[in-house]
Write a protein that binds this DNA or RNA. Structure first.
Lengths: 201, 201
DNA sequence: TGATATACTTAACGGCGTTAAGTTAAATTA
DNA sequence: TAATTTAACTTAACGCCGTTAAGTATATCA
């Protein structure tokens, strides 16, 4: 009687196969240059089959983005363990955030630019991965204030400001790769260092 | 013999008409949801006629963005007169930049996100409007350093870092309007104030 | 074994950016 | 003024696209 189970497993596997193909194509060719037909070709099924597993192209995008956010969260969790120097942790996290964006630029834009464009009216749903990422950032700011390395800033708004800064440098480096940046790495460090400097007691 | 002149004038006028229609549609419906046919419909010409005035859809986008950059530059020029307090000038300019983005969010995204996506390999061409905008920012930083209000920072990289910060907060406020921001105005001020704080001597 | 449900495909709809070829009307020339 | 050239614009088409309705084959179940 393991028939249903096997079928479910097979469906799940195919679903993942579609998702993997979609991710690879979205990342390499850009969302709008990828057609359902191309995705179908890649996995050697007919285009319409995809609609039995996803509601459409936008839904595929959405699922890809969810995975991306989970990856980002994992990157952060790795840094979470070290409790010694909260400011240094914050700096490292900021750097990790930007580097994550530059490593998966298409994913990053998919998540933080394209998706909100296609999925209007999304805040940060309670318990969502996005919320957890942001909470992690706020917690680090809070720790810096508690240790009196930072002056008595509003933790919430400071978290948002830091997010703004790292998001900005990430976006510019992704969108204008041919801009005459003095040095990309130096720019990232400068943005983070300047923000942290402006928060110190 | 004013025939040629009149013809030139008429062509110019039609060109502007196309551009205005394209801008309105791009802004209201999003670049990828606008077709050449829709633009043509709006101005009551055949779609192919547009190709006699522009090289294609991406070229139309390019021209629309040039206009936006000119508008941004004009906004800055209005602030340029006051020479008394360069730090205050920088703060005001940053605020003006973000407010420009929020006032014309779609135009802003068209220029700083969508355009680079469709027009790969654009740096800052010599004498371009983009270059003038960026030079304006750098000049202000330079003045702050000269007056010793800022420490001896690299002017170029600092300009880029400031641009990153204001771009970031602009983008987040545009893309996540429903995020529980503590207060949008306060956030903008915090980002700018924190960056400036981190640059002071 | 025959009925039923599931997984997948074929064919089509309307729309897209863009191009080649054709048409019409105005300006120029003889 | 009549013929010719030139410019402005349109028609028709190509090969794509996302998505849906209808159809087919295969595996499961009674």
């Amino acid at each position: 009687m393991g028939v249903k189970e096997r079928r479910t497993r097979e469906k799940e596997q195919l679903r993942r196969q579609i998702l993997a193909a979609a991710r690879e194509l979205f990342v390499n060719e850009g969302y709008e240059n990828v057609s359902m037909r191309k995705i179908a070709d890649k996995i050697e099924y007919s285009p319409t089959m995809i609609y039995l597993y996803f509601n459409g192209k936008a839904d595929l995008l959405d699922s890809v983005c969810q995975e991306t956010l989970l990856n980002l969260l994992n990157t952060f969790e790795l840094l979470k363990k070290d409790k010694s120097d909260p400011v240094e942790n914050l700096r490292k996290s900021g750097k990790a955030y930007v580097e994550f964006g530059l490593k998966y630029p298409q994913d990053y834009k998919l998540t933080f630019v394209v998706r909100p464009q296609y999925q209007k009216g999304l805040g940060l749903p309670e318990g969502s991965v996005g919320e957890r990422v942001f909470n992690y950032l706020s917690a680090m700011v809070s720790e810096c204030v508690r240790q009196k390395t930072f002056r008595q800033v509003d933790v919430e708004i400071t978290g948002q400001a830091l997010w703004s800064a790292v998001h900005g440098v990430t976006m510019l480096l992704i969108d204008f790769p041919d801009f005459p940046w003095t040095a990309k790495d130096k720019l990232i460090d400068t943005v983070i260092h300047t923000m942290i400097g402006g928060l110190k007691a």
